[in-house]
């Protein structure tokens, strides 16, 4: 579904990604793990068309999308829920959700809002409140809800557990599993290694702009080398 081949990218003269290749299949939950500054968000922003990679290919459903404008990538159903949520703080929860369907699934807006508040009943309680007044966990729910409003075919979640309390992190991963069970393909970018490996089908580990380890999540979980060097166990 998503196929990234030898992508080199960065900002101006600063190279961040030195040839990254990975794949996400139909209905698959793939985790990309790595510490701060490994290049995970750079990769996401190149996938979503915020930046254009220096070299390499990003294909979605067989079509080249490297360097394509972000709105066209949204049109295709590749939706990113960004790191730091990036909800619209000056707008109500309802309006944030409405804008999730600005480009895609616009006719199904009312139905999808019902669906999202069913998944996140908390958002219903905060419906007419400004998104900027929500707690971090609620903002994360809103960001995911807003992403779901576009009826994604592949959902990129960039560090959804960042800054959440342990209880909410549990909740977040349960939700990710639930979305996956409904057949949604998910590309989960996380620092939270253990929990990500528990829910993922396959995983990649990124270090300094390169994929260093890849394989089925279960194997990575038991990989002695990885456990010692990366997970600190």
């Amino acid at each position: 579904m998503l196929e990234i081949v030898e992508v080199k990218a960065g900002y101006g003269h600063a190279k961040v990604l030195h040839g990254v290749s990975l794949k996400v299949g139909e209905g698959e939950l793939v985790a990309l793990l790595g510490s701060n500054g490994a290049g995970k968000s750079t990769l996401n922003n190149n996938i979503s068309g915020i930046y254009k990679p220096f070299a390499g290919s990003i294909r979605f459903d067989g079509a080249e999308i490297a360097g394509v404008r972000s709105e066209e990538i949204v049109d295709r159903g590749l939706i990113q829920v960004p790191e730091g949520r990036r909800v619209f703080p000056n707008m109500s929860v309802r309006e944030n959700l409405e804008l999730g369907s600005y480009r895609r699934a616009t006719p199904n807006r009312a139905r999808n809002i019902d669906r999202v508040v069913e998944i996140f009943p908390r958002l219903k309680e905060r419906f007419d409140q400004y998104a900027g007044t929500l707690s971090g966990g609620e903002q994360q729910m809103l960001a995911i809800g807003r992403g779901l409003m576009a009826e994604p075919r592949l959902l990129i979640l960039d560090e959804p557990s960042l800054g959440l309390s342990p209880l909410l992190v549990e909740e977040m991963f349960a939700l990710i599993q639930k979305l996956r069970a409904e057949g949604l393909a998910i590309f989960l970018v996380e620092q939270n290694v253990v929990q990500s490996l528990e829910v993922a089908d396959r995983a990649y580990v990124m270090e300094n702009g390169l994929i260093t380890v890849e394989g089925p999540a279960q194997d990575l979980m038991h990989d002695e080398e990885l456990r010692r060097s990366y997970l600190g166990m």
């Binding site: 709105e71 990036r86 619209f88 703080p89 707008m91 309006e95 895609r104 576009a150």
Partner: peptide
């Protein structure tokens, strides 16, 4: 209004 406060978020919504 979205672009006024959150450009990156707006871009990602298409």
């Amino acid at each position: 209004r979205a672009v006024a406060k959150e450009r990156q978020g707006a871009r990602l919504m298409g």
